[in-house]
Amino acid sequence: MKALSFVLCVLLCTPVYAQQRLPVIDMHLHAFPADEFPPGTPLCPGDQGVTIPTFDPKAELDFASFIACDKPIFSAKSDAELRDRTLAELRKYNVRRAVTEGPVELVADWRKAAGGDTIIPGVAFGKRKDKSIDELRRLHANGQLAVLGEAYLQYRGHRPDDPRYEAYFALAEELDIPVGIHLGEGPPAAARIPGYEEYRASMGSPFMLEDVLRKHPKLRIYVMHYGSPLVDEMIAMMFTHPNLYVDVSCNVFAFPRAQFYDALKRMVDAGFEKRILFGSDQMYWPDAIGEAIKSIEAAPFLSAEQKRDIFYNNAARFLRLSEAQVAKDHQQ
């Protein structure tokens, strides 16, 4: 009898989404080399509290002071582990499609390992060395470029309307592929981190996209990290430009939960729940995917319909998935 009672409890007491998860689209995933980050580095999810430590500016920054939680998540120790653990997380949470940016060769390796249509290939620009427009055209023709981004302009201290990037936005509009651009916070204490010297918080204003959107009215563009913390500016831009979407990546799992929920609720209350995309911004910590999904699931102010829109429906519309593709994603 005890065994039967246990089985009945599992079937009747477990939430439906835990028994059979509905599909998810992750609009912001990375296939980075694992050795870019020290292997096994811990990271605190936002629901455990994230603290930016105070330190003497004459002293060397101690990054260990950022980890002040009981249950951190850990970065992968090799390229293969990063790939395999990330793909396992995608399967676990029924992420059917994931826009994935990184070195072209690594993205191709992840696509092969994942099989099917799971990995949607993205190519970055706005880095210190960008691919030429001709190279991007070749990648697109070969099926290796479906989304142009992440655009790392803010990490270079550059504005989106800088003339040197005009050809990239024009190409995306011509090819009718989306652009994902970083606007928002960088790593904590970015001004003190070697390699991030060019990053400028002041280059994260959503208003800097205005001229790009006016020049390219047919361009599908989404702002990664929703221009955090400049939510009012983002709302003003979305109100003005109907082809502008946002994703919630990184902020959804790594930022203080109260801050993230405040920003998300403000965008939803402003009427933009149909233009908010789920993204994890998984880089080196595969468990970030699950942490990000749980953050949306636990949001007390979101209805079931709004959660489904953020998790899947908005991205399906933004990516222009066909009815057949949507139906395939919903097959279990």
Results as ranks from 00 to 15, higher is better:
2 K>G: 12
4 L>C: 10
8 L>V: 10
8 L>G: 11
9 C>S: 10
11 L>A: 09
11 L>P: 03
18 A>F: 15
19 Q>Y: 04
24 V>I: 08
25 I>W: 01
26 D>Q: 09
27 M>R: 00
28 H>C: 07
31 A>L: 11
39 P>K: 02
39 P>R: 06
40 G>R: 02
41 T>V: 08
41 T>D: 15
42 P>H: 08
42 P>K: 08
44 C>H: 04
48 Q>N: 05
52 I>M: 15
52 I>R: 04
52 I>V: 12
56 D>E: 12
58 K>T: 13
59 A>C: 12
60 E>S: 07
61 L>Y: 11
63 F>S: 04
70 D>N: 06
70 D>R: 06
71 K>E: 15
71 K>N: 14
73 I>L: 06
74 F>I: 06
75 S>F: 03
75 S>R: 00
75 S>K: 00
75 S>H: 05
76 A>L: 11
77 K>M: 15
80 A>H: 09
81 E>Q: 15
81 E>Y: 02
83 R>S: 05
87 L>Y: 12
89 E>Q: 04
93 Y>C: 01
96 R>A: 08
103 P>Q: 10
106 L>Q: 15
116 G>R: 07
117 D>V: 02
121 P>H: 03
125 F>Q: 07
130 D>Q: 03
130 D>I: 04
131 K>N: 05
137 R>H: 01
139 L>V: 00
141 A>V: 01
142 N>W: 14
144 Q>F: 11
145 L>N: 01
145 L>Q: 06
149 G>F: 06
150 E>I: 01
154 Q>K: 04
155 Y>H: 04
156 R>F: 09
157 G>A: 13
158 H>W: 13
158 H>F: 15
162 D>T: 10
164 R>K: 08
166 E>V: 11
166 E>R: 00
168 Y>A: 00
173 E>F: 00
174 E>M: 06
175 L>Q: 04
176 D>H: 09
176 D>I: 02
177 I>V: 03
181 I>M: 03
189 A>Y: 00
191 A>T: 12
191 A>P: 01
192 R>L: 14
193 I>A: 05
194 P>W: 15
201 A>L: 11
204 G>T: 03
205 S>H: 01
206 P>H: 01
212 V>A: 13
214 R>A: 14
216 H>I: 04
216 H>T: 05
217 P>Q: 14
220 R>M: 13
222 Y>V: 08
225 H>Q: 15
228 S>P: 10
229 P>Q: 09
238 M>G: 05
240 T>S: 12
242 P>R: 01
244 L>G: 03
249 S>K: 01
250 C>G: 06
251 N>G: 00
252 V>A: 05
254 A>R: 09
255 F>Y: 07
256 P>K: 08
259 Q>V: 12
259 Q>G: 10
260 F>E: 14
262 D>G: 07
267 M>T: 05
267 M>P: 04
270 A>M: 03
270 A>I: 04
271 G>Y: 04
273 E>Q: 08
276 I>R: 00
278 F>M: 09
286 P>K: 08
290 G>C: 05
291 E>K: 01
291 E>M: 07
292 A>Y: 06
294 K>F: 12
296 I>H: 01
298 A>Y: 11
299 A>Y: 10
304 A>S: 10
311 F>S: 10
313 N>K: 07
314 N>D: 15
315 A>V: 13
316 A>L: 05
317 R>F: 09
321 L>W: 08
321 L>T: 07
323 E>Q: 04
325 Q>D: 14
331 Q>G: 14
